[in-house]
């Protein structure tokens, strides 16, 4: 029900946001804010850390949906770069990446480019997954950014492409 409300909000808000844009974000896929993601689908970093070392038969698909430069600097081990979801090209890459996954697959999204309520990427990525019919989606919560809420806490990282 909450997911349905979220999608309804997205469908209602997108045209309004686009209409209000002043050209500052030309080329952007304007989307819902991270703060509109239901709490039940928001995951705390500490929660993910506990499961990172567990060898699961069906490991989650862990996707970084923000800047590629940031991904190359540092990312969560095992995560895959999936395109900046705020941009049409990025969202297209993202869609292609998840297209072959089963709809009930656990997908964990993260970005951490900006404070949670200013992140332009996780909201559109989350909405896209629901639009595609995925039913098991979580989004990692970074209150400040990936540097502060993950790297500075000493959680594991990988570097490079």
């Amino acid at each position: 029900m909450r997911r349905r409300e979220f999608i309804r909000t997205v469908l209602f808000c997108c045209p309004a946001v686009l209409a209000c844009s002043n050209g500052a974000n030309i080329g952007r896929a304007q989307g819902p804010a991270a703060s509109s993601i239901p709490r039940s689908d928001v995951m705390q970093p500490a929660e993910l850390v506990k499961t990172l070392h567990v060898r699961d038969t069906y490991p989650p698909l862990l996707l970084q949906v923000g800047s590629h430069i940031f991904y190359a600097e540092a990312h969560i081990p095992g995560s895959v770069y999936a395109g900046a979801a705020a941009q049409p090209a990025g969202l297209h890459t993202f869609e292609n990446m998840v297209s072959s996954s089963p709809k009930d697959k656990l997908i964990i999204l993260y970005c951490g480019c900006c404070p949670w309520d200013r992140c332009p990427n996780v909201g559109p990525a989350y909405a896209k997954l629901h639009e595609l019919g995925f039913t098991n989606v979580k989004v990692l919560y970074f209150a400040h950014n990936f540097g502060t809420d993950w790297v500075a806490k000493g959680y594991p990282i990988e570097k490079g492409e």
């Binding site: 940031f70 600097e73 540092a74 951490g112 480019c113 900006c114 400040h144 950014n145 990936f146 540097g147 502060t148 993950w150 790297v151």
Partner: peptide, 8 residues
């Protein structure tokens, strides 16, 4: 080089 720019 600048300590990790992992948030803007």
């Amino acid at each position: 080089l600048y300590g990790g720019i992992l948030g803007l």
